[in-house]
Amino acid sequence: MDERPRGYRPSRALTAVSALALVLGGLALTATAIDPPEEGTLVGDHRWKDEGRPGGDGGHRGPGGHRDGRGGGDAGGDDDTGGHGDHGDGPVTGPDPTLFVPIEEAPPAPDAPEPDGNASTGSLTLDCGVNENGVHNSENVIVAPGVEHGAQHTHDYVGNQDVQRFTEDVDANNAILAEGDTSCERDDRSMHYWPVLRDLTAEGGDADRPGGGLDGNIGRIITPSSVTIEFLGNPRGPVAAMPEFLQILTGNARAFTADGAGAAARWTCTGFEDRAFPDRYPLCPEGSDVVRVLEFPSCWNGADFQSDDNRSHIVFPEEDGACAEGFTAVPRLRHTLVYEVPEGPDFALDGFPEQGRHPITDHSDHINVMPPDLMAELVECVNAGRDC
């Protein structure tokens, strides 16, 4: 039997290297069926099955910098076989109103490690739009490839637009991505996706659909007012190229029921970026908007574009910013999402039903399908200390 990790591809790896909390309850929200969503936004009607995938990255730093090795993306670490409609005897609830706190009460945002003389301090920013064309589904091609509604919540997509016909075959899915249209500039077909944020004062077009109201995710989807996709360097040295089809997750969609394991959420407001909540929704003052900051792991094992736990092939740096032995620094991806939300505690993140739409469950996903010449430019910009 071949015991190599799923997705192991020696030739690709060698080419890449050389290329260099609170109780659920409170605010009960009841779904009301209205007009169905636009064609192509949500398809199919199947239940999520976790398939027993292990969680955690075996050394991921959770909140506070401690190592936990638990949790893990949309799969989490739980043996959860829930599905839409499997919500017990009562309605899905959340978020609890006490999760909304004025941004002025947020702790200081975590400091980045101080760069040394070998640091790669440049950056590259790409314009991929804000999903103004409304590409959504409730699947997750990384954690549950080919499982319709495997996420039990709805994702926003920017970048690759061919997101509705994935299969269980990872190679086939990568071939789809390689040919897909894209919303990113410079023909970057990479995929970026995250759970939508919703306005709870308005009914959503998917109130009677899985991923939406049938899974407790009530409200109108809010299109971000801005999305910033940026790649940064490493404070301890140069970065190498990402391999083609590299899959990266950040955060844990089941962090609430996993005691915060694997959480990487950061919630703040425009004009208050020096402070942020890891586990609360910010109430922003007039003239300020809600911001989600999602930092991705950036230390790659040099061999695999994916792993069975979806994390151990690429992990977060050590506390000082260095990669652990056996791992190589690659460009560090950051998603910054800005939203105009209704006043007060009337917005919420999509999530699994049992997570209560808790802000600590925020997460994001990426598959690299960047053209080789653009990846080479990215690496050169970051290592040379230029902003491109």
Rank of each mutant, 00 (worst) to 15 (best):
G88R: 00
D80P: 02
R53E: 11
D79V: 12
G88A: 00
E114N: 02
G56M: 00
D79L: 10
G72F: 09
P54K: 14
R53N: 11
H84Y: 14
T81Q: 13
T93I: 09
S120Y: 05
G82V: 10
L99D: 11
P110L: 12
H84C: 04
D89T: 07
H87M: 05
G62C: 13
P113K: 01
E104D: 14
V101S: 04
F100R: 03
E51D: 15
D79M: 12
G52E: 09
P54D: 15
P95G: 08
K49T: 15
V92Q: 10
P115Y: 04
R47F: 14
G59D: 05
G65C: 11
G94N: 03
H66P: 07
D96S: 14
G59Y: 03
D57I: 00
A109R: 04
G69N: 00
A109V: 07
H84R: 05
G85H: 02
A112K: 11
G56C: 00
G59R: 06
P102C: 07
G83H: 10
G88I: 01
P97R: 07
V101F: 06
W48R: 15
H46C: 06
R47G: 13
V101M: 06
G55N: 12
D80K: 01
T93F: 03
G73F: 01
T81I: 10
G73E: 02
A112N: 09
P95C: 10
A119P: 07
H60R: 04
D96W: 12
D78G: 11
H87A: 08
D74P: 13
T93W: 04
D78R: 10
T93Y: 04
L99S: 11
P113W: 03
H84Q: 07
P110C: 08
P91G: 09
R61P: 09
G72P: 13
G77W: 00
H60Q: 11
P102F: 08
E105V: 03
D45L: 05
G52I: 08
G94C: 04
G90I: 12
H66S: 13
G117A: 12
R70H: 07
H84V: 02
D68N: 00
P107E: 06
G65L: 08
G65D: 08
D89W: 08
W48E: 14
T81R: 13
P108C: 01
P115S: 06
D79S: 15
